[in-house]
Simulated scan of single mutants.
Amino acid sequence: MERVHYLEALERTEILAKLSAFSPHVVGTPPLALDLPTSDIDVICFAPDADAFTCAVWNAFGLRPEFRMWQWIGGARPVVAKFAHAGWVIEIFGQASPISEQFGWRHFLVEQRLLACGGDTFRNSVMTRRKDGMKTEPAFATVLGLDGDPYVALLSLESCSDIELAALLADQGFI
């Protein structure tokens, strides 16, 4: 099946409407325009009741091709579901934490701000690392020269002002 634009895929599944009770938010590489042919569409949800969330996801998408769902056994025990649609794999992540506290959302917002400040040269540098096989957060951390765990390092930037982010990007030669 030919891959459609990610927004069209979301519209065709009605995923945001069907999961509206769980405050769905789209994150990840497609809305950042950093996706690769192997990228999926990530939808994070606020799911304080894992059983209710599981039932809603199952009822809405359980008959979709390649559907599978599981619950992590560690940490906050999020529920994850995946299925294929319109040339994409769509991954739904439901966690009991509000969206504003979820790492996926927090990473997404930092990445969005960095891309807005960094321009095409920065975006192209991140994409080069992605095309070389790096995941998104490690690609950002490598390009920015951040040390340590790339996921933690990226989160350390969320409290920075845009001026501070611009200074970091300037130090790396992007602006």
Results as ranks from 00 to 15, higher is better:
residue 11 E to Q: 11
residue 12 R to L: 09
residue 13 T to G: 09
residue 13 T to F: 10
residue 14 E to P: 05
residue 15 I to K: 03
residue 17 A to C: 02
residue 17 A to M: 09
residue 18 K to H: 04
residue 18 K to L: 13
residue 20 S to G: 02
residue 22 F to G: 01
residue 22 F to L: 01
residue 23 S to A: 09
residue 23 S to D: 12
residue 24 P to I: 06
residue 24 P to E: 06
residue 25 H to D: 04
residue 28 G to I: 12
residue 29 T to M: 07
residue 29 T to Y: 05
residue 30 P to N: 04
residue 32 L to W: 02
residue 32 L to S: 04
residue 32 L to G: 05
residue 33 A to D: 15
residue 33 A to Y: 12
residue 34 L to I: 00
residue 35 D to G: 01
residue 35 D to A: 12
residue 36 L to D: 00
residue 36 L to N: 00
residue 36 L to S: 00
residue 37 P to L: 01
residue 39 S to Q: 03
residue 41 I to V: 15
residue 43 V to T: 08
residue 43 V to Y: 06
residue 43 V to S: 01
residue 43 V to R: 06
residue 45 C to E: 06
residue 48 P to T: 04
residue 49 D to Y: 03
residue 49 D to F: 05
residue 50 A to V: 09
residue 51 D to Y: 04
residue 52 A to H: 01
residue 52 A to Y: 00
residue 53 F to N: 00
residue 54 T to P: 01
residue 54 T to D: 01
residue 56 A to H: 01
residue 57 V to P: 02
residue 57 V to F: 08
residue 57 V to D: 08
residue 58 W to G: 12
residue 59 N to G: 02
residue 60 A to L: 11
residue 62 G to L: 09
residue 63 L to Q: 13
residue 64 R to A: 09
residue 64 R to T: 02
residue 65 P to L: 11
residue 65 P to F: 09
residue 68 R to K: 15
residue 68 R to L: 13
residue 68 R to P: 00
residue 69 M to K: 10
residue 70 W to D: 12
residue 71 Q to S: 09
residue 72 W to A: 11
residue 72 W to T: 04
residue 72 W to C: 05
residue 72 W to E: 13
residue 74 G to W: 10
residue 74 G to S: 10
residue 76 A to R: 12
residue 76 A to L: 11
residue 77 R to G: 00
residue 77 R to I: 04
residue 78 P to I: 01
residue 78 P to E: 00
residue 79 V to T: 13
residue 79 V to K: 05
residue 82 K to D: 06
residue 82 K to R: 13
residue 82 K to V: 07
residue 83 F to V: 07
residue 84 A to W: 13
residue 84 A to H: 14
residue 87 G to Q: 15
residue 88 W to G: 14
residue 89 V to K: 07
residue 91 E to T: 14
residue 91 E to I: 06
residue 94 G to S: 05
residue 95 Q to S: 13
residue 96 A to F: 02
residue 97 S to G: 04
residue 99 I to G: 05
residue 99 I to W: 06
